[in-house]
Simulated scan of single mutants.
Amino acid sequence: MTLSPPADTARKIGVLLVNLGTPDAPDPASVRRYLKQFLSDPRVVEIPQLLWQPILRGAVLTTRPKKSAHAYAQVWTEAGSPLLAITKAQAQDLQARLGDAAIHVDYAMRYGNPAIPERLAAMKQAGCARILIAPLYPQYCAATTATALDECYRALAAMRWQPAVRTLPPYYADPAHIAALKTSVEAALAALDFTPDAIVASFHGMPARTYALGDPYYDHCLETARLLSDALGRPLIPTFQSRFGKAKWLEPYTDASLVRLATEGSRKVAILAPGFSVDCLETLEELAIRGKAQFIEAGGTDFAYLPCLNADTPGMAMLETLMRRELAGWV
């Protein structure tokens, strides 16, 4: 019986980047599987499952997959889902930046593939006796950060021999994050052929009830927007997108704000999404395509979506800084 990993791998350290997830393909069947997993998570939909599951399996999963598949098809790339392809690129770049043969960088998705249990098992099999789990959500929310860690802990609970684990804290106000956003936004603004009358910072929405229950997400988002506004030296308008269902969500809503800006005279607008670590359906389709259409239809003349940090140099330098900090004492 082998009681220890091989000598050449016993000291390996794992870094697991975790993001939300994506369907395997931009077709209704793949989207249905993805949405079923995603919307069955009680961290995401905080309605008793006995009440929610009939609604989910009925109206939601019979109508939404086709519509969502159409949206995914508009942003799908040769490398697949933008979220998956960019997260993979982040992992590869971070591996090169850390430059240590003892460190093994991998990536996983909370929903869909590659799955968290699969990648944690692979890291353990590769000899990673210590693993830093890094949810790529700058602002903490139970529906994102917590559920990603829940899934990691469930996978670890099934292991008789567990690795030592650390987790990346939320980095919404970290100077390295704000500096990376500043550099990225300034470069994107400099490349525009117009000067925005207003700049919108759109964050993913959450039901307002989550804030009342004590979730810090709303405050984290506003603090990111405030710090970035200070760093840029110009105001940002924080808004919240992607609301679903009839319940009240965090306000102001992004779509309504874009219409209001156009009708009130801000005809040139730039929008960024500092709550997303990589570009995905919610940024590339909801903001860059639908958001632009809504703004122009309301009377706007110029609209620009400013990309996420993605695997570009400012964002990767930030991730390297954060990972080295959290790996201190292990490396």
Rank of each mutant, 00 (worst) to 15 (best):
G275L: 06
G275N: 09
L261E: 07
G275F: 05
F276S: 05
A273Y: 12
I271M: 02
A273D: 09
A273M: 13
S277V: 03
G275W: 06
S277L: 10
V269I: 12
C280T: 07
L272D: 11
K268M: 04
P252C: 01
R260S: 14
A270M: 09
G265Y: 05
F276G: 08
V259G: 00
R260F: 04
S266Y: 05
L272E: 09
R260A: 15
A273K: 11
P274K: 03
A270F: 11
L272F: 14
E285L: 03
L272H: 12
A273V: 13
I271A: 01
A256E: 15
E282K: 02
A256K: 12
D255C: 02
D255Y: 03
K268G: 02
V278Q: 14
A270D: 07
F276M: 06
A262N: 04
S266M: 07
C280R: 10
R260W: 09
L284P: 11
D255I: 04
G265T: 11
P252M: 02
T263V: 14
G265W: 04
A256T: 12
L272C: 14
P274G: 06
S257D: 04
L261A: 09
A256V: 07
L272S: 10
E285R: 11
D255V: 04
A273I: 10
V278N: 15
A256F: 08
D279Q: 07
E282S: 03
E285G: 11
Y253S: 09
V278H: 14
C280N: 14
L258C: 05
S266K: 14
D255A: 10
S257Y: 08
D279C: 03
A270W: 08
P274S: 07
T263E: 14
D279I: 07
S257E: 13
Y253N: 11
S266R: 12
I271R: 01
S277I: 01
E285P: 14
L261H: 09
R260L: 13
R260I: 09
L258Y: 01
L281P: 12
G275R: 02
I271Y: 00
E282Q: 03
L261R: 09
E282G: 04
T263M: 07
V269T: 12
R260H: 12
T254N: 02
S277W: 00
F276I: 06
F276K: 02
V259D: 00
A273P: 15
A270T: 10
V259K: 06
A273S: 15
T283G: 09
R267P: 15
D279S: 07
I271C: 00
E282D: 11
D279Y: 07
D255S: 06
L284Q: 05
V269L: 12
L261Y: 09
C280Y: 13
L281W: 13
E264Y: 03
T283M: 10
E285W: 06
E285N: 14
D279V: 09
C280W: 13
S277F: 03
D255F: 03
G265K: 09
R260E: 14
